[in-house]
Design a protein around this nucleic acid. Structure first.
Lengths: 240, 240
DNA sequence: CCAAAAGTGTTATGCTTACACCCATGC
DNA sequence: GCATGGGTGTAAGCATAACACTTTTGG
């Protein structure tokens, strides 16, 4: 059907009987710190869209799965391993990349504030710079990345409403008020404190860590999510 | 980054600096007739998996969107236009196709029994045969199509539980018992008749067509879905 | 008149929502 | 002692689930 061979004709090494699109894997990475919902963007070093900010990502290699490619991109651009990932959507409208037909399989990723802090956020080869941005205060984005990000945000909201994934954005230990603040920031609506606490605790995915968050005022109990909760989410991961 | 040019060297016409995967678009097409949930499969004419049944689909062209490719494949293989489509998932594990790296973007489609009946189900170029199969009584499938189909079935169940998409599988006019039978077949569980009717009617997406289904016993009122209902589903279409 | 599917209401239960005050600490 | 965020219970409304009989037609 489509044959593949390697010739030694200079730059053009891979030849096929039919044209093929490029396939990239991009990642929308969210975290929550300093009271903000943040996403990681890299600044493009070269054209097209040189100097503009874009989602981290790159070309899919021939010998790795799409999810592995997403993990690899994250590792290369942030040093992070074992990140919660799920496939978001595949964008492939012909005009989305001026270089030609590029189909991108986009993954959706969540990291804790701790993981985010540990990251060596420096970008890979084709990046000038990389940094976290407040999701509600973004620069202009390259390609169709703005609409991809909006779509990811929609998915994140949906996830928070229907699953209990919010804790993945926080450090290992957190107070219920911090968790509520994540939900309120992501969903962009105020929640009732008593109802929120009841619902989260009823979901039976949190346990008291025993510690207390000492601060300016009354100390707050620290919670962590149970191992069972993580498994549960992993099981649901491919869905929908 | 990756250049693309055409040379006149026999079969090898398209050359790139980096290897590229093939990208196909496959469609899982569901309908409901004769009390069965059915999916359309085509029988492969050539290798690999010659003679085995597979999802309809084909290579994505360079100048069309992924959804347009799915619509085109459906048109070529069934003659059907204006089919309800949504993107399901992108499968790209390296070993999924023995011919090499093939990434497939899978779409999920629903057609009414009427549309299904009108279809010229004959398959395209590379098909020996094409026919509808009872989803609960399938032949061996080529590639990883069995797990794709299982995933699509999961999505269909979820859609029926949370949205009111069931009517897309039925003819334009249908009785509430027929609609309930769709739900029961897809969800694989018996539903309470009174609760089902109340819930569906409360959703305010059906209207009486005025007609009656005459049969062996007491005639049943015919319903159709309202235009509003279709728009509503279209609006939700990209979600999740 | 019998068989078969159509059609119809009520009650109990659980979940969601709205709502206001006391508690523990740092300064 | 006061300012600040932490922590708690109850009642009303709403949606869900369970449940059985009458109606209409064809044969």
């Amino acid at each position: 059907m489509s044959s593949q061979s390697q010739s030694a004709s200079g730059m053009q090494q891979y030849s096929y009987a039919h044209p093929r699109p490029s396939v990239t894997v991009d990642v929308v990475l969210f975290t929550f710190s300093d009271g903000e919902l943040r996403t990681l963007l890299i600044q493009r070093a070269g054209p097209p869209y040189a100097g503009q900010w874009a989602l981290p990502g790159g070309f899919a290699r021939m010998d790795e799965s799409l999810e592995a490619a997403a993990q690899r991109e994250l590792l290369e651009e942030t040093g992070a391993r074992d990140v919660y990932l799920e496939q978001l959507y595949t964008f492939g409208d012909p005009p989305r990349d001026p270089r030609g037909r590029v189909i991108t399989v986009v993954y959706f990723a969540l990291v804790s504030a701790e993981q985010a802090a540990r990251m060596a956020v420096a970008g890979g080869d084709d990046a000038q710079d990389a940094r976290w941005w407040n999701v509600y205060d973004l620069p202009a984005l390259a390609f169709d990345h703005r609409s991809i990000l909006d779509y990811a945000l929609q998915r994140l909201r949906w996830k928070l409403e229907w699953t209990a994934l919010g804790f993945l954005l926080l450090p290992n230990q957190f107070t219920l008020s911090e968790l509520q603040s994540v939900y309120e920031t992501v969903l962009k609506e105020a929640l009732d404190k008593r109802n929120f606490r009841r619902k989260i605790l009823a979901a039976d995915i949190l346990e008291e860590s025993g510690g207390l968050r000492e601060g300016d005022h009354r100390p707050a109990k620290l919670y962590r999510f149970t191992a069972k909760a993580i498994e549960l989410e992993q099981a649901r991961r491919r869905f929908p």
